[in-house]
Design a protein around this nucleic acid. Sequence first.
DNA 1: CCCAGGTCCATTGCGCGCAATGGAATCGTG
DNA 2: CACGATTCCATTGCGCGCAATGGACCTGGG
Lengths: 166, 166
Amino acid sequence: MPQPKKRVDALHLDEQLCFTLYSTVHLLNRTYRPLLEELGLTYPQYLAMMVLWEEDDVTVKALGERLLLDSGTLTPLLKRLEAAGLVKRERDMLDERQVRIRLTTPGRALRSKAECVPVSILEASGLDVEELRDLKARVLAVREALSARLEEEPPPPTASRRRKTG
Amino acid sequence: MPQPKKRVDALHLDEQLCFTLYSTVHLLNRTYRPLLEELGLTYPQYLAMMVLWEEDDVTVKALGERLLLDSGTLTPLLKRLEAAGLVKRERDMLDERQVRIRLTTPGRALRSKAECVPVSILEASGLDVEELRDLKARVLAVREALSARLEEEPPPPTASRRRKTG
DNA sequence: CCCAGGTCCATTGCGCGCAATGGAATCGTG
DNA sequence: CACGATTCCATTGCGCGCAATGGACCTGGG
């Protein structure tokens, strides 16, 4: 064969870490769904509630930085949490650009019902605590690398980029 | 302190592998976006095209099993790929329940433009090939565990379950 | 042949994610 | 104070993901 080495085909689904991550996250979501259904929450709503259980009375911006989400996602999500009676959304009186999110009494109370969720998920993952910690650290390293990349290349305009400094 | 040991708070965002996976997948998507924009594809569309580049002329069902997606997601996605001129959707003549997806000539040709994508992503991830393979295997193990769980517990009805065989 | 059950795809409805846009409030500089 | 720049949130539009439902088709038992 003249072809010296059939190198691994990078365009093959099974070769790609990204697809593995992508599909695993979907399965995680399906695993969470029945658990969170009992709390009346979706997974992103559950994440927002976790932030609030850590630190009540935060701005939308702070929530977004914590969850890596923007207002286009958070505004309707928080409105649904408010409609469910779990949080209140009020303009900050000192800086009216900001909206502060605070737990209601039912919102705080929901925490105790949520405590069994991480246990169930850990069990379903088939990992022990050691493996989980290690895997989390490795994935986090990837996230940090991607994050740094995305911040260092801010100007990728849609088409015909203007070359500025050569 | 009477509290003997403040055990790690499982309801804390930073403790959770799931949130790390979730947010990493979103950053991956943002990293893919500008690359795939040049191909006129979204990430899920890119995944579908990868399957077709591996094996042309597959059914919607086979695609769904490969990507772990259902027809509710795939039907509109494939219609968009068809509208873009990359695939054709035709009923199987021998079994008209099935719809077969086949690449068009432009669809096949797009593969060469896609070959640089995995390279860019690998670079952005900050991993070497060894680390990537290892990480993929570990995440895959989690996915398999979740998948087994989800298949073994098929009947989680919304409320009041009917007990049938005791 | 007939019909009950199962398979396969399409549709609907809802909740994200995110780019893009816009408006209101605040800040910085003079 | 004036005013341009910036910050923060809301809105719009689009593409997933998925549960639920339905319709067309096939299959197997009688």
